[in-house]
Simulated assay, not measured.
Amino acid sequence: MDDYDIALLALGGIFSGVLAGFLGIGGGVVLVPMLVAFGFAPVQSVATSSLAILVTSTAGSIQNWRMGFLSWRRVILLGLPAVITAQIGAFLAGKVLPYILLAAFGVLLLVNIYLVELRKRLVGSGVNPSKLMTPLMARLVTGGLAGFLAGLFGVGGGVIMVPLQILLLAEPIKTAIQTSLGVIVITAISACIGHGVAGNILVVPGLILGVGGLVGVQFSTRFLPKLPDQMVSLLFRSMLALLSLYIFVQAWQSYQGFGPLASEYSISIL
């Protein structure tokens, strides 16, 4: 890689770090296509992205914890069942055609746009989803369901977990985002171990992206608490809409048998 390539990777890492801190997603949707564009194989791109996301999510979560905005207990209660159920989802994913999975995930993202606001409507009508289960059970169910869907659709779970936390745990969107970023640390560790054993991780590009992400996430985690909840909600829903469009394009390319990710539907740790 020359200096130009290194600079592009660093900028991509910074952008993914900003997304991670603002929206509680890992940034694989940005990093994986970038690495594919650099000529890396899809599986290497996904694996290398997981290393970068581990660095980014760890740095962001430590910063959130230092500012008093992160409970590691909440993270563990969501993260452990997510890691377990993700394996079930990944097993089932291998039995479904990639373009079908992609299209279904695109639909799920659109549904999540509605779920972000659904709790307000339910509470207004006298129904409170968080009262249907104990807090412990609600967290285990949320983490388990997010992990299963993440494994099924080949993502890290950030875009799935945040709406579920809002709906089932009655958490404000900022808290849900900060907790989701912490959970991504756990899922990224799991992903890195698996890809590392398989020898798929490109360490140098991954670290360059990770350092860029570290810089970006420091900015966004500090700025997030200052934003109005309505603006954060709008940003999150807008990101879901853009991601769904991206996923539908990937589904069409996979169906047609072309495109850089046609043979690799996973988009890493979202």
Rank of each mutant, 00 (worst) to 15 (best):
I193V: 14
W252Y: 15
A150N: 00
I177K: 02
Q44N: 12
G151R: 10
I173A: 10
L270D: 09
S220F: 04
G79A: 13
L234V: 13
V203H: 06
I186K: 02
P205K: 01
S130R: 09
G106M: 10
F258C: 10
A251T: 03
V29L: 15
L202H: 07
L9A: 09
F40Y: 15
S16T: 13
A146E: 01
K131I: 06
F22N: 05
G21K: 00
L80S: 12
T142H: 02
F22H: 02
G21Y: 09
P129I: 01
I76S: 12
M67S: 12
V159I: 11
L23G: 07
M239L: 14
L261P: 05
S233M: 11
R139L: 13
V215D: 08
I193G: 04
T175K: 15
N64D: 10
A170K: 05
G147A: 14
S244M: 04
L115H: 05
N112E: 09
T187I: 13
Y265E: 07
T48Y: 02
L97A: 15
G68T: 03
I113F: 07
K120W: 07
S61F: 00
F219I: 12
Y265I: 04
Y4E: 14
C192V: 13
G28S: 06
G39E: 12
N64K: 08
L92E: 09
G17V: 11
K131A: 13
M137H: 11
M34C: 09
I84V: 15
I184A: 14
A86I: 00
A41P: 04
F69Q: 13
A47E: 08
A10C: 09
F258S: 13
Q63P: 03
V46R: 12
F22I: 06
V249P: 00
Q218H: 15
L240Q: 06
S16K: 12
G216Y: 02
V107K: 01
M133N: 08
L224V: 07
M133D: 10
I84A: 15
L102E: 13
A251C: 05
D5F: 11
A103W: 08
G194V: 05
I177W: 00
L8F: 13
G213F: 04
L242W: 03
G144L: 05
L132W: 12
P172I: 05
V96K: 07
Y4C: 08
I189P: 01
S180G: 08
A37M: 13
D3V: 11
G196I: 03
E117L: 08
K120Q: 14
L31S: 04
A241M: 14
V75Y: 01
K131Q: 14
Q178I: 11
L168V: 04
D229W: 01
I267L: 15
S130Q: 09
A191V: 06
L181C: 06
I177H: 02
P33N: 08
Y255E: 15
R119M: 01
V55W: 03
S130Y: 02
C192Y: 03
L224F: 05
F91D: 14
L240S: 08
